[in-house]
């Protein structure tokens, strides 16, 4: 128990500290890297509560896809962050409003069990005990039996999305110069270099 508590405080502390650093870092690339650190620590917290599926999904989706996308955007677009920062204070009221709304929602979620005590029952109900069946296995049990029909249609929807993206964007352009490594390697001094005798005092 002591070890678990130790790790909880470690993850929680690093998560909060790196979340602050996301805002405070001067370099936007550092911000994104701190964001990734926050995600890792949140995943660690999930792992401690026994939600190993959520932990893995958080890493795969948020770190693997979303954060990397952020990183690409930050590095590829030429955004003047100093300028953005100077006007950031104008948007502070909106940010504060969103913060208040989020805080209120948190209160409602936590207060919900006080208002209707039967919610506690539903929360405890469908999940098998972690000791007997892991989250991932329990989810798989449901996904591949009760919901197999929806799961398969979802797969087809994603297939259509993929076909659509390819049909609408892939272009086989002509007149493009591509690197042909075999040709480059096969070049010999005879084809690549021309030796010209230049008389002194004269140009070419």
């Amino acid at each position: 128990m002591g070890l678990q508590a130790l790790f909880f405080y470690l993850f929680a502390f690093v998560a909060i500290a790196s979340a602050f650093m996301v805002i405070w870092a001067r370099n936007p690339v550092h911000s994104v890297l701190f964001l990734i650190l926050t995600f890792f620590n949140a995943a660690g917290l999930f792992l401690l509560t026994g939600a190993e599926f959520l932990a893995m999904i958080l890493l795969v989706v948020y770190v693997g896809a979303v954060a990397v996308l952020f990183l690409f955007v930050v590095m590829m677009l030429d955004i003047d962050f100093a300028k953005l920062r100077s006007t950031a204070l104008e948007y502070a009221p909106v940010g504060a409003l969103i913060g208040v709304i989020l805080a209120a929602e948190l209160v409602v979620v936590i207060g919900g069990s006080v208002i209707s005590p039967e919610i506690g029952k539903t929360i405890a109900n469908p999940i098998p005990d972690v000791a007997t069946r892991t989250n991932t296995a329990a989810l798989g049990d449901q996904l591949y039996t009760t919901y197999v029909y929806f799961f398969q249609i979802a797969g087809l929807v994603l297939l259509v999305a993929m076909i659509g993206a390819i049909v609408l964007t892939l272009r086989h352009r002509t007149n493009i110069k591509r690197q042909n490594i075999a040709n480059q390697v096969a070049r010999s001094p005879e084809t690549a270099v021309e030796v010209v005798k230049v008389k002194s005092g004269q140009g070419l």
């Binding site: 249609i153 087809l156 929807v157 259509v160 999305a161 076909i163 659509g164 049909v167 609408l168």
Partner: peptide, 11 residues
Amino acid sequence: ALELQSLALYV
């Protein structure tokens, strides 16, 4: 089902 059909139709 509706999304499967619609997505194909958009394309």
